[in-house]
């Protein structure tokens, strides 16, 4: 049986969700036998494999043009999309900048920041979107993993269910935000 192809993406978020993913202890061993981890911040692969993947976990909110492009690509190339953690599900902390002027934010952080020599980073950093959005406001999403970060147990439960071809039964405390 061929391995299930899994990608993970890291948008605007703190990487805590990925940390939690790596925190699922011995389930990692089972996963290693059953999945092929494709493009992910924790691998060296940066593009989706030819033919796409079975599952993509997206950590973080959609906040800039690159992420907007990637989330659409992820949708196209994944059979199942999972909003992974509160930022992806609700906008969470990155969403707090909504309602602020993005130009002024850039100016304050980069223009006045001591480490950037007053240089605005638009040649290298993607432009910010006017509004930070949870993933499902941009593309349809199949499953939502709540939590900041989602508890390792919930992550394991969801992934193992999917590997068994079942719908993850997330309920009760599994759906706790924060």
């Amino acid at each position: 049986m061929s391995k299930v192809k899994v990608s993970t993406l890291w948008f605007s978020g703190c990487a805590g969700c990925h940390m939690s993913l790596l925190d699922i202890d011995e389930v990692l061993i089972e996963l290693a036998g059953r999945i092929e981890l494709c493009n992910s911040p924790i691998t060296d692969l940066k593009v989706f494999p030819e033919g796409g993947v079975d599952v993509t976990l997206i950590e973080g909110a959609v906040a800039n043009e690159e992420q907007l492009h990637l989330v659409k690509e992820a949708r196209e190339k994944s059979k199942i999309l999972i909003a992974f953690g509160d930022c992806a599900v609700t906008g969470n902390v990155p969403g707090l900048r909504n309602g602020m002027n993005t130009d002024k934010l850039i100016e304050d952080i980069y223009g006045k920041g001591v480490t950037t020599n007053g240089k605005l980073p638009y040649d290298v950093v993607p432009h910010l979107l006017d509004r930070v959005r949870p993933v499902h406001e941009v593309v349809p999403v199949e499953y939502f993993l709540h939590g900041c970060p989602p508890p390792p147990g919930v992550i394991a439960k969801a992934i193992l269910a999917l590997l068994d071809g079942k719908t993850p039964e997330l309920q009760g405390e599994d759906l706790k935000f924060g």
Partner: peptide, 30 residues
Amino acid sequence: HVCSFCVSNGGCELQDLACDLEMHSVRVPY
């Protein structure tokens, strides 16, 4: 309602309701 940095995180009726009512995502724009 950002639970992650709320002082009531873990002691909030709204947060509990999301679990009780199985609210997977908010389908209207925030």
